[in-house]
Design a protein around this nucleic acid. Structure first.
Lengths: 151, 151
DNA sequence: GGTGAAAACAAAACCGA
DNA sequence: TCGGTTTTGTTTTCACC
């Protein structure tokens, strides 16, 4: 992983549909050379995928919330994580060291959807109570630090 | 936005570098027709971008944490949001209705980086105190509900 | 929304430092 | 080992139906 690789990573993070010719011009190499580097970044597990970002409101999901999950004394964290993964409303799931055991981010259409989501969460075996923090607005999201220090 | 558009969205979310020919085969249309649909989804603000997902550990960021930000009586939320945006360690920033005013997710290399991040946050004008919840492991992340109900 | 042709691009084999 | 060049097949993009 040299400076060229980091430049390629930043370029692909900004636009995953950039052509190899465009990337080649950016880093001053030929297109096949860039292709080879990107292939190595993919197979080496540095690049884990390419994803289109979709405006959630366009799909009718206008609301989200952070929910702290407190487990019961007998709750099994692996089992609970599996149950959380089975709920489509749960967008992110972090196992944390804090007051709660998990923090999840749920994405719902409206308050009725939020109520349903919280009821679903509270119904999961091993979950004691939840603490919900409603997101009023997302200032920014998914802003990974630049790979290239001169960016 | 019909069922075909939703299928295209899901396909591009799974693989943003899919070719129009591949997408065309998936939805049973011609490549130019798919191209036109995708262009409309882009210009209509449904697709907001295409991003390569990079394993944070590959860039030396092995740790992250959720930090609740409590503001002082005189704190201005817009001003604070701007200050938070200026910190590269802050990956996500939500303005919330709860005990805290903001919740941010920070991405750091190690505990020393976390300490530096918390010090930085506490140094911002208008921020009173912070409450940090260390993420032990990310069970999953950025899992937007499928656009296509039959997926 | 489909078709077809021109231009651009991607992937592979091969050559050179 | 890494990058450049060439070649071949695919894809994109445009005009037109």
């Amino acid at each position: 992983m040299d400076a060229t690789d980091r430049k390629l990573l930043d370029a692909l993070r900004a636009n995953a549909r950039a052509t190899y010719a465009q990337l080649a011009q950016l880093v001053g190499l030929s297109a096949p050379a860039v292709h080879e580097r990107v292939a190595k970044l993919e197979s080496g597990g540095v690049i884990t995928g390419y994803h289109a970002a979709v405006a959630p409101e366009s799909l009718g999901y206008a609301m989200n919330a952070l929910v702290g999950v407190f487990i019961t004394d007998s709750g099994d964290t692996d089992e609970i994580a599996t149950s959380l993964a089975a709920l489509p409303v749960v967008e992110d799931c972090w196992f944390v060291a804090g007051e709660e055991t998990f923090v999840v981010k749920v994405r719902v259409p409206d308050v009725a959807g939020l109520e349903a989501a919280i009821r679903e969460l509270n119904g999961i075996k091993g979950i004691g109570r939840t603490r919900t923090t409603v997101v009023l607005s997302t200032k920014f999201e998914d802003r990974v630090p630049a790979a290239d220090p001169d960016a």
